[in-house]
Amino acid sequence: MDLAIIALSARPLVASAARAGLAALTFDLFADLDTCAHAARCVKVHKKHGFAFDGDDLIQALASLAPAGLPVVLGGGLEDEPDLMMRIAERNPILGNAPQTVRIIKDPQALAALCGHLAIPFPEVALGAPEGLSGPLIEKKIGGAGGGHIRRRAEGDLSPPWPEHYLQREVRGSPVSLLLLANGTESVVVGASRQWRAGDPDHPFRYGGAVGPIALPEPQGAAMREAAQRIAKACGLVGLISIDFMIGPDGWFLVEVNPRLGATLDIFDVDPLPPLLGLHLAACGGRIPPGLPQPSEAHAAGVIYADRDIIVPPGSWPEEVADRPAAGAAIARGAPVCTVRTQGPTLEIAEARLAARSRDVRAQLGLGEVAPAP
């Protein structure tokens, strides 16, 4: 066993590990067919409060199955629990950003202050009643991931946010994300992607998918790349990180820093790029390449969510589907079912193929049709 991987959904990380020739022990909430196929051993951890780890169950499973000292790589789902990250690190070293670093970078007031110091546009935030905040507001969970935790604040609502939540001025525009590889002092841009939402009435800002690589509009693109790299250097970030922006009529704004590997591995962990998890491990040791090649084609990936409670029917899955649940699995309304991945010579063709394949998969699962998200 070379390492352990912990994430709400470990499949993109363990697929990259397998591509790098690494044997991984994985802990996530799904243990789907693809994760188990790529992992040396695959463990399903109990859920808590919907889609969060049961910390005690995770620590017990890690202590039972992972030798002390086996390094751990963390994916999405732990940024809101730095104390759980510290419990993991007490026994198994984390190859990535330390819990203390994650706690600071996910503190909205600390990030706002840092952006202000570096003259990086960042929407105003508040931990209490929204005095002094103008315009439409959204409420977000501190350290939340996936967008399902974000709600739009009703106009005129002056109440404070829920505990462990904060308010942020909503910025209209197109969401884009930069994937960086950093070694604590330097960083190189892996690529940029455009993202979209797969919202429903309960989760209007839920992550829907991404397509890339995209070319950022200039001159904003140069300023955004510089801002991302300045943030990474100021915080001493290491490994693969993603930095989210909004580009709209009022310019561009940095809105989130994700100091870990994320969903855009589906876009960028492809030839001719080397396995990104291998690059992540090297960067944590201080080594990054001077530059990286770009994929020769556009890649798109979209998440399919259940619009009702379903039982996964028997049958074969299309080649483009990842995160495949086993036949007979019960999936609750609002939960992710699988991911569809496509590619093409242009962004438009990759997106059109994604929309078509997603319709086919939804029909196979007996789910209702939705408008194409991109």
Score class of each variant (00 low, 15 high):
residue 164 E to M: 13
residue 346 T to A: 12
residue 321 V to Y: 09
residue 200 D to V: 06
residue 255 V to G: 05
residue 222 A to E: 07
residue 349 I to T: 09
residue 164 E to N: 11
residue 243 I to D: 06
residue 310 I to G: 06
residue 65 L to P: 10
residue 364 Q to M: 09
residue 3 L to Q: 06
residue 210 A to W: 01
residue 327 A to Q: 08
residue 251 G to D: 12
residue 346 T to P: 13
residue 7 A to P: 12
residue 126 A to L: 03
residue 305 Y to E: 05
residue 300 A to E: 12
residue 25 L to H: 12
residue 216 L to V: 07
residue 343 Q to N: 13
residue 34 D to W: 02
residue 211 V to D: 07
residue 176 V to Q: 06
residue 178 L to N: 04
residue 42 C to V: 14
residue 263 A to Q: 04
residue 128 G to E: 00
residue 173 G to N: 11
residue 195 Q to P: 05
residue 73 V to A: 00
residue 155 E to G: 14
residue 325 P to G: 00
residue 61 A to V: 05
residue 118 L to G: 03
residue 280 H to L: 10
residue 214 I to A: 07
residue 28 D to L: 12
residue 349 I to M: 13
residue 253 F to A: 15
residue 5 I to H: 04
residue 340 V to E: 06
residue 109 Q to S: 06
residue 326 A to E: 07
residue 71 P to M: 00
residue 287 R to D: 15
residue 293 P to R: 11
residue 93 P to H: 11
residue 337 V to A: 01
residue 68 A to G: 04
residue 29 L to H: 02
residue 307 D to M: 05
residue 210 A to N: 03
residue 124 E to Y: 03
residue 252 W to I: 03
residue 303 V to Q: 12
residue 134 S to Q: 14
residue 4 A to M: 15
residue 59 I to E: 07
residue 147 G to A: 09
residue 296 S to R: 14
residue 91 R to L: 10
residue 244 D to R: 06
residue 172 R to L: 13
residue 264 T to S: 12
residue 160 P to I: 06
residue 340 V to C: 11
residue 158 L to N: 08
residue 144 G to E: 04
residue 8 L to W: 03
residue 170 E to K: 11
residue 209 G to F: 00
residue 10 A to S: 15
residue 10 A to M: 09
residue 136 P to Y: 10
residue 42 C to K: 11
residue 282 A to G: 05
residue 205 F to K: 04
residue 45 V to G: 04
residue 13 L to M: 15
residue 92 N to C: 13
residue 144 G to F: 04
residue 286 G to H: 01
residue 21 G to S: 14
residue 326 A to I: 07
residue 11 R to F: 10
residue 297 E to A: 13
residue 337 V to N: 06
residue 23 A to R: 15
residue 138 I to P: 11
residue 241 I to A: 03
residue 205 F to A: 02
residue 147 G to N: 15
residue 261 L to H: 02
residue 336 P to T: 11
residue 118 L to F: 06
residue 306 A to I: 05
residue 336 P to K: 03
residue 75 G to Y: 02
residue 244 D to V: 05
residue 204 P to K: 10
residue 90 E to C: 14
residue 228 A to N: 03
residue 5 I to L: 14
residue 193 S to L: 07
residue 102 V to W: 02
residue 179 L to P: 00
residue 247 I to R: 12
residue 291 G to I: 09
residue 14 V to G: 10
residue 46 H to A: 13
residue 108 P to S: 05
residue 305 Y to T: 08
residue 153 R to I: 02
residue 354 L to E: 05
residue 249 P to A: 12
residue 255 V to D: 01
residue 135 G to P: 02
residue 224 M to N: 03
residue 346 T to L: 11
residue 188 V to K: 07
residue 103 R to E: 14
residue 2 D to K: 04
residue 16 S to K: 08
residue 176 V to M: 11
residue 13 L to W: 02
residue 195 Q to C: 01
residue 152 R to E: 13
residue 236 G to L: 03
residue 137 L to Y: 07
residue 358 S to V: 12
residue 263 A to S: 14
residue 69 G to V: 02
residue 67 P to I: 08
residue 172 R to E: 15
residue 110 A to W: 09
residue 148 G to R: 10
